[in-house]
Amino acid sequence: MNSVERHQYILKQLQEKGSINVLELGKELDVSSVTIRKDLKVLEERQMLFRTHGGATLNNPYTSDRSVIEKEKMQSEEKALIAETAAKLVEADDSIIIASGTTVLAMARHIHPIGNLTVVTSALNVAIELNRHANVEILQLGGMMRSTSASVAGPYAEKILDDFFCSKLFLGVDGIDPDFGLTTTNGLEAHLNRKMIEVSQKTIILVDSTKFGKRGFGRICGLDEIDEVITDQGIPAHMLKELESRGVKVTIV
């Protein structure tokens, strides 16, 4: 095949499958992976596809900031299962950090504290949800409020965290990419999330499967810096393999 024929074949496969793999295309077309990657680069420049780790897709892998009201309606069933599973990890007399996002908010609704629970959070809606429990002590971080997420970010919030250390961090993200790691759509929030990881013994990521292969503006950390991922059955096989190869526990609900 010449380059034009390869491009037509690649686009046809994308239309049929939604995503394609460089190695598989190389075998099918009997050309090197380098040739396929060059083809994908040309097609991306023509705005006909989006390149991803090891392949390409028709769907834009880059995330944009959306309001918490809009996000709550997306993958709601998967988020509820993830949240319920995560809530069971909260132990008696625990001290935890809950970041911002619709999945961790759903988790807060499933928490039934045993003994005295201490919660540090950047999210106002999480604090309000947990405030109904008499045996939950809440430390609300301060700073600039983000209207889209009802959470705070910035140096004031980070400074408060210098005085604490918690057993677990429950963190929602906007994207997980094998190369770029964990991301969110806001740079200040990403920086605060990094600080939360530093002051937590264990980092647990709550994420529905649509976030895999996505990239947000602000990078939080690499895959090696997290301990567990709780997700749904739609997780791509290559991402499951990648996470487990790096020693990350993956819980599929």
Rank of each mutant, 00 (worst) to 15 (best):
L49W: 05
A127W: 09
Q13F: 01
G18P: 01
G175P: 03
V250F: 03
Q233V: 08
L117S: 14
V34G: 10
K202F: 08
G187R: 14
L58W: 02
I114L: 13
G54P: 06
E84C: 09
K202P: 02
T85M: 09
V22E: 06
I36M: 10
I220M: 00
H110Y: 15
K71E: 10
I96D: 10
E16I: 12
L29M: 15
S151V: 06
T210Q: 09
L243Y: 03
G213S: 07
K168G: 07
D179Q: 14
L43D: 13
A99Q: 04
E189K: 07
T184V: 13
V68R: 09
F164T: 07
L58F: 04
T148F: 14
G143S: 11
R215W: 01
A80Q: 15
I220C: 10
I98V: 10
L25K: 01
R109C: 05
N186A: 05
A80G: 10
A153C: 06
F180P: 02
D65N: 14
T231A: 01
A99C: 03
F165M: 09
G101N: 06
Q233A: 13
S151F: 00
M145V: 15
E5L: 11
D224E: 14
F180H: 11
P61E: 11
Q140P: 08
G175A: 04
K38E: 08
L23P: 07
R194M: 13
H110V: 03
V199L: 14
K73L: 13
K88L: 11
L105N: 03
G115P: 12
N125Y: 03
A127T: 12
I176Y: 08
Q140H: 04
G181M: 03
H112K: 13
N131E: 07
